[in-house]
């Protein structure tokens, strides 16, 4: 199912963007701060559809121009809509994730960071073995929401021709002449996927909090 592939690819990229973005925002480097701030403002303020359109058509134009410069006979070059769409969605959800991760990083107990540094752990080690696991537990509820948004945004890539369920339903409507039925099926499928995601998130939250079992 194309939907799930887009979802998975996009999710991985979005988490990466979120980690990079939040680190940039929390770092002492002024330039990194400004770039990360611009990133979150732009991608949270522009409609998702527009972002997808800019990436898909924009990249097509750019690549075509580059192509023409090298091989003058080139008609049209584009990146597969799958990747343009997945990348665009990842950037959007990544900007929300940046804010979420930033808040979560700030919530990590500074004492254990000191303990890690006192033991001689390098910054990189401290980041991956101490900061990220702790931050993840705080960010998890919001990450669930981001995943749901991501899931629903994937419907938009049908507009640029990716053959996911909405697109297929549109084609099917021409044949069955029952648009309501078709689209309701699509809706129910999405509903099913989002429900599964919600249950998975609940299980993940329980698992990540298991080390708190003894307290309170």
């Amino acid at each position: 199912m194309v939907v799930l592939k887009v979802f998975a690819v996009s999710l991985v990229m979005a988490v990466a963007f979120g980690l990079i973005g939040s680190s940039a925002k929390l770092s002492k480097n002024r330039i990194a701060n400004k770039i990360a701030s611009a990133y979150t403002i732009v991608f949270r303020g522009v409609p998702e559809l527009l972002v997808i359109l800019i990436f898909y058509y924009g990249s097509a134009i750019t690549l075509t121009s580059i192509g023409r410069a090298i091989y003058p006979q080139t008609q049209f070059v584009d990146i597969a809509p799958f990747w343009a769409g997945a990348f665009a969605i990842a950037l959007i959800v990544g900007s929300y994730a940046t804010e979420t991760f930033r808040g979560a990083f700030l919530g990590v107990d500074p004492g254990i960071i000191e303990a890690a540094r006192a033991l001689g752990l390098s910054s990189l080690h401290t980041f991956f073995y101490i900061r990220v696991p702790q931050m993840w537990r705080l960010a998890l509820p919001s990450v669930g929401n981001h995943m749901l948004s991501l899931m629903k945004d994937t419907a938009l890539i049908s507009i640029i021709g990716v053959e996911e369920i909405l697109y297929v339903a549109e084609m099917a409507t021409a044949v069955t002449l029952k648009p309501f039925t078709m689209y309701m099926i699509v809706a129910v499928i999405y509903l099913g996927i989002t429900t599964v995601i919600t249950f998975v998130m609940m299980a993940l939250e329980k698992h990540s909090n298991r080390h708190l079992a003894g307290t309170r």
Partner: peptide, 10 residues
């Protein structure tokens, strides 16, 4: 440390 600072997730 005074507040132990054990890594809670390990």
């Amino acid at each position: 440390f005074q507040s132990f600072n054990l890594f809670p997730h390990l």
